[in-house]
């Protein structure tokens, strides 16, 4: 017998005493953030800003038309930035650093030698201060959002959900997803929170209403 068959057989023997019907699952938890009235987008956005700031992420609000200036400001200290396919070129018009396109794909060493990455996102969750990347247009593959030390992410108000249950059903599990809740951190040494271990140490969010 293969190990597969042996494991499955042991499972069936072990659960023989249990009813075959699905276990009934209560679902009375909230589908929105406790402090936010469902559908109140501006309260959700305010909560997102509060959480991101708590994490030490920098949040700047910018009108759509002012994005080129906001991007230039966010990337001011960076000499080079990776830009994924699908990100509007116009956003980079006011920034004078080196733009690296990820096509053909940059090597790990090239990405490691790049200061920043500029992306959009697929969704944001206010309650936990989370940005979700799904590799769609303006986000690109995962490695470029990981190796540069500064991640600048453009988030639109309409993408902000108050809590996880509102967001998760809109995401496509077939794509690789990265959920980012503040910059890389560790508390492994005496439970003291240290920002920045392996992922980007700085996260700047440009919030477009």
């Amino acid at each position: 017998m293969s190990s597969r068959e042996a494991v499955l057989r042991r499972i069936r023997q072990a659960t023989a005493d249990l009813p075959k019907d699905p276990v009934s699952v209560p679902r009375s938890y909230l589908r929105h953030a406790p402090a936010v009235v469902p559908g109140d987008r501006s309260a959700a956005v305010a909560l997102l800003v509060e959480r991101l700031t708590e994490y030490g992420a920098e949040v700047r609000r910018s009108a759509e038309a002012d994005l080129p200036a906001a991007v230039a400001g966010a990337l001011a200290a960076a000499g080079s930035a990776v830009v994924p396919a699908g990100l509007p070129d116009a956003w980079l018009a006011r920034w004078s650093g080196v733009v690296r396109r990820d096509a053909p794909p940059l090597t790990h060493a090239e990405l490691d030698a790049t200061d920043a990455v500029l992306t959009t996102c697929a969704a944001a969750v206010a309650e936990s201060g989370t940005l979700v990347l799904d590799g769609g247009p303006g986000q690109g593959r995962r490695a470029p959002t990981l190796l540069p030390d500064l991640h600048v992410c453009v988030v639109r108000g309409a993408q902000v959900h108050s809590a996880m249950p509102e967001a998760i059903g809109r995401l496509a599990p077939a794509r690789p997803l990265t959920w980012i809740s503040g910059p890389s951190a560790t508390a492994d040494i005496e439970m003291i929170r240290v920002r920045g271990v392996h992922g980007p140490r700085r996260l700047t969010v440009l919030l477009v209403p």
Binding site: P105, G129, P173, S181
Partner: peptide, 20 residues
């Protein structure tokens, strides 16, 4: 850890062309 979400959550399904 007493956080609302840990800084990074990754999900993946099999392999993805050109990513990972």
């Amino acid at each position: 850890t007493g956080e609302r979400m840990a800084p990074y959550t990754s999900t993946w399904t099999g392999v993805t062309d050109g990513d990972g």
